[in-house]
Amino acid sequence: MFGTSDERRTLWRHMREPVLTAGALLVMLGINVGLGATLPVPHVWIVELLVAAVMVATILWFSMEVRHEPPLVKLFAGIGFFWVGILFTMTLVDYLSRG
């Protein structure tokens, strides 16, 4: 649909990053699905959680282009996760220390 080779080159120049990002996400998803389907080692959930975290970071940093944004937007992208951390940590302080 994109006629001239010039246009194709331009298109590829702009689409390279999204395509690579999607590829990376698919690979990581593959890892997680594979781990989830086979459960190779006990406590594999730790690995799965880490992979999911990297996927989230990839979406933020590349798909949502946080890396091109000013510091303020970077702060806003991160602060929510910090607050989620507060919610989880302080609640778990209760649940993990219940007798």
Binding site: W83, I86, M90, V93, D94, Y95, S97, R98, G99
Partner: peptide, 22 residues
């Protein structure tokens, strides 16, 4: 203020450790 909510729950069945922390 986001770190202190558990002080509403000292006698509501929250763990003792959590109560001290809050």
């Amino acid at each position: 203020t986001f770190f202190v909510w558990g002080h509403h729950m000292f006698v509501n069945g929250q763990s003792d450790f959590a109560s001290v922390a809050f």
